[in-house]
Design a protein around this nucleic acid. Structure first.
Length: 567
DNA sequence: GCCGTTTTCGGCCCGACTGTTTTCAGTCG
């Protein structure tokens, strides 16, 4: 685990213990904010010279960070940890249990962890607690059972189709006029906690009823007049909010978040003597100034419209001009794709036809190199043969340019998997790490740096090799890599596959800041993989990418000239 | 604990729903 992630966890732990201890809520929030800032930091926290330049990080947090970096622990946290049973932290993960209840369970019922909570439920002790009725106990038992089987977050590639399916179905219900998803899904995060859906309808009862009895619903968690929440058989929670049509924009903005963005915008409203909530923007006389559209709300606050993907409570309000973020339609080529020559399911021709359907002017055939034995990587001899087949297909098929390329393995020491004279025969070289993905940070940095600086490499494919929820991948010093990528004119990939989304959003932002170019590719192995491009676009937008910084948006002539560039 | 273009002290976003009460605390987002 990277030190940033470790330290972020430490601050999260701090916050949770403070909560249980009944500390000041703002102090708790301050710790959560520090955790988030550290987690989102692209550079190593140890390399940050002026910690006070980080927003939300004050004197006390700086001392804690320095102590942790020096000694690997924070004494104050140790003291706090000794003051409560460690298992209480697990209890805080149970849905419906908050700090107050956890504290009461501990002090009044001697419940110190999940096993003792289960015992207390089983032997009926819990029923003797004040304000602890059968329904509450049953809900706790249900949450405990759910906690054991459910993973915490869902990849966007799984959540998005579910949300779209629910929306399509609900839209057909009588009275429903408008329906959209909000939350982290609308902001395009790589993983989603739960799905938030907003709707307007003339028949709220019918909509709520249809939603709560939707196929796949296994439990109704909340059933109110304007808010319903259900759990699906796949484990995901879906919230439905029924709002007035006139307030749809305000509600959409509110439920899209992020929480941090909302707080910033609300504070701005207060400064202007106004109030913002999910019903609208109100002036000092409680008159509604704006509510129907998000745009009208931002504009009445003196802001430009802020796209959902960058509403993360960072610098988005300070912008003089909102960047024209990249869109799906800006993508004109896919430069990292596989065929049946290695582990893909399409022939060269089928791949090219599919790319044509998507409106691309160029597709690159980049099958695996020889070391990727598990993926049927091509020997040098097979690659030579493959190049001639690609060139032949390029001549035969009109309406699309097919580039002969390779996804060449970057060995653990940074060497590439083919000799230079073979690589020089290719139109495009994507260099990617596939093995030794647990090597330490300094080795990973040296390894990727060597590939970035290699004059025949155009793109670094899925730079960390992470697989979301399964393996963290490499943890190189990203600022060093991005500076080199900018200097060498090597593009860094956003692999659009929703298992990868590698680079991730914060890294894309840092890469662009460093002056590096980005390439968004589907890494398609089958026709349906092209549909994953939208997740790459969302990640790119979260990283504030504009089309001119993305080589896939170049015209064919521009791309050809760029590919011929010297390092 | 953090922060400051009215504040270095006194603020810090705000409402819905549930379960248990009988007017509201706790949790969630």
């Amino acid at each position: 685990m990277s030190v940033n992630r470790e330290l972020a966890k430490v601050f999260e732990k701090f916050a949770t213990i403070l909560e249980i201890s009944g500390a000041n809520a703002f102090k708790i929030n301050a710790h959560i904010k520090v955790a988030r800032v550290i987690e989102d930091l692209v550079e190593d926290i140890a390399a940050v010279e002026d910690l006070s330049s980080l927003p939300g990080v004050g004197k006390s947090s700086i001392a804690k960070i320095k102590e942790y970096l020096k000694t690997g622990e924070i004494k104050e946290l140790g003291v706090l940890l000794d003051s409560i049973p460690a298992g209480l932290l697990d209890l805080m993960q149970v849905q419906g249990l908050g700090p107050k209840t956890v504290r009461r369970l501990w002090q009044e019922m001697n419940v110190v962890d999940i096993p003792t909570l289960k015992e207390a439920i089983a032997d009926g002790r819990l029923e003797s607690m004040p304000r602890m009725g059968m329904k509450t106990i049953s809900n706790i038992a249900d949450s405990l059972a759910f906690l054991e089987v459910a993973s915490k977050r869902t990849r966007i590639g799984d959540a998005m189709p579910i949300a779209e399916m629910i929306i399509d179905t609900l839209l057909a219900i009588q009275g429903v006029s408008k329906i959209e998803f909000a939350g982290s899904l609308r902001r395009g995060k790589d993983t989603i906690g739960d799905i938030d859906i907003l709707a307007t309808t003339t028949k709220p009862e019918l909509l709520a009823q249809s939603f709560c009895t939707f196929e796949g619903v296994i439990k109704v968690l909340v059933r109110g007049d304007t808010k319903c929440a259900v759990r699906l058989v796949c484990g995901m929670q879906v919230d439905l909010r029924i709002v007035e049509e006139n307030a749809f924009g305000a509600a959409l903005m509110y439920f899209t978040g992020s929480k941090e963005h909302n707080i910033m915008v609300r504070e701005l409203a207060i400064k202007q003597n106004m109030k913002l909530n999910e019903y609208g923007l109100f002036d000092s006389t409680e008159t509604c100034v704006a509510s129907k559209t998000e745009r009208s709300l931002y504009e009445n606050l003196g802001l430009q419209y802020i796209p959902p993907e960058i509403r993360e409570g960072k610098q988005e309000l300070a912008l003089e001009e909102t960047p024209k973020l990249i869109q799906l339609k800006d993508i004109l080529s896919d430069l990292h794709d596989h065929t049946i020559a290695s582990d893909g399911h399409l022939t060269i021709v089928e791949l090219a036809e599919e790319a044509k359907k998507r409106g691309f002017h160029t597709i690159a055939v980049t099958d695996h190199s020889q070391s990727s034995v598990q993926a049927n990587g091509l020997s040098p001899e097979r690659l030579v043969q493959h190049i001639s087949e690609i060139k032949k297909a390029n001549e035969e098929i009109s309406g699309i340019n097919i580039l002969a390329g390779s996804e060449v393995d970057i060995h653990s020491d940074g060497r590439l998997d083919y000799e230079d004279d073979l690589l020089a025969q290719l139109d495009i070289v994507v260099a990617s790490p596939h093995s030794a993905l647990k090597q330490d940070s300094s080795k990973a940095t040296a390894r990727l740096l060597k590939a970035i600086e290699h004059p025949l490499v155009h793109i670094i494919g899925h730079p960390t090799g992470r697989v979301i929820g399964k393996r963290p991948g490499l943890d190189p010093d990203m600022p060093t890599l991005f500076a080199a990528a900018a200097a060498c004119n090597t593009a860094m990939e956003i692999n659009a596959n929703s298992w990868r989304l590698d680079l991730r959003d914060t890294q894309v932002h840092a890469a662009i800041d460093a002056g590096a170019l980005i390439s968004i590719n589907t890494d398609a192995h089958a026709a349906c993989d092209f549909d994953q491009l939208r997740y790459g676009i969302l990640t790119a937008r979260r990283g504030w990418l504009t089309p001119e910084k993305c080589i896939n948006c170049f015209s064919f002539d521009h791309l050809r000239a760029w590919l011929a560039r010297s390092c």
